[in-house]
């Protein structure tokens, strides 16, 4: 249970409880830290509260206790729509684009949150350069994009605000292995630009291959934390993590 905490953490969550019903929190005191240029994978079995945890950090699930710091700011109770402006972006798992709006409008919405119109326009042009697929489909309704294109659009939307921290909820869900590696390559490049990334993943192998550090949540609490590389080979983690999965799989049969 070593905690290789980065010295210059950008996003810090401490002892956070969160859930829809205050009497039944799903996240029951979880913590995390992530530094600039670092990828943190949040892993755990089904129902461990990973997704609720990251949504609580994005501000769309109420936080009961604990606190969340972004840089020097306490953002525990900051309204969710203000967080992108402060440098915290979130890409939800499904329905993460506005399907009835055009690709351009999806990006413009993120640009609307910026103070400067010309900056918003130039950032959008940057995104179209970085994601040529989206540039070709700019007039298309986002609902007509392929699964991979949608994921790219969702990431591009999050990047328009030049976030310092990018949080993604299962970016690999529903994508083919080829697309998963494409998305993860993108994330790796985003990290290289100094962005801190928090990644909730079911795809443990791929996530540990990409991440610097990993955090395993079980029943809403930190169970294990460590360097991703060592965790991938750690028999204790494999047993803990996969064992739970095996039991869950058996229960389903």
């Amino acid at each position: 249970m070593s905690l290789p905490a980065p010295a210059t953490a950008l996003l810090v969550a401490e002892a956070v409880t969160a859930g829809y019903d205050p009497d039944l929190p799903i996240v029951r005191g979880a913590s995390l830290r992530v530094a600039p240029g670092e990828i943190l994978a949040v892993l755990g079995p089904n129902g461990a509260g990973k997704s609720t945890f990251i949504k609580a950090l994005a501000g769309i699930v109420p936080i009961g206790s604990g606190h969340v710091l972004l840089g020097d700011h306490d953002i525990t109770h900051v309204a969710p729509h203000l967080r992108p402006r402060m440098g915290l972006a979130f890409v939800p798992q499904t329905e993460n684009v506005f399907g009835t709006l055009s690709v351009t409008d999806n990006l413009k919405i993120a640009g609307d949150a910026l103070a400067d119109r010309t900056v918003a326009a130039s950032r959008m042009a940057e995104m179209f350069d970085a994601f040529p697929d989206l540039a070709h489909a700019r007039a298309l309704q986002a609902g007509r994009l392929s699964g991979g294109q949608r994921q790219m659009l969702a990431v591009a939307r999050a990047l328009i605000g030049r976030p310092r921290v990018l949080m993604l909820d299962e970016p690999s869900a529903g994508l083919s292995p080829k697309l998963v590696s494409e998305v993860f390559r993108r994330l790796d490049r985003i990290r290289e630009s100094g962005v801190a990334i928090v990644l909730v993943e079911q795809n443990v192998r791929a996530a540990l291959a990409l991440a610097d550090r990993a955090l395993v949540l079980v029943e809403g609490l930190n169970r294990h934390e460590g360097l991703a590389r060592s965790m991938a080979d750690d028999p204790v983690v494999a047993e803990l993590y996969l064992g739970i999965h095996r039991r869950a799989a058996e229960a389903l049969v």
Binding site: G19, Y20, A48, K50, T52, I60, Q202
Partner: peptide, 15 residues
């Protein structure tokens, strides 16, 4: 909108 986000780690859900 808030309850539409209920925690389900594996199943597709509305967000």
């Amino acid at each position: 909108p808030s309850t539409a986000l209920a925690e389900q780690d594996s199943a597709p859900r509305a967000l």
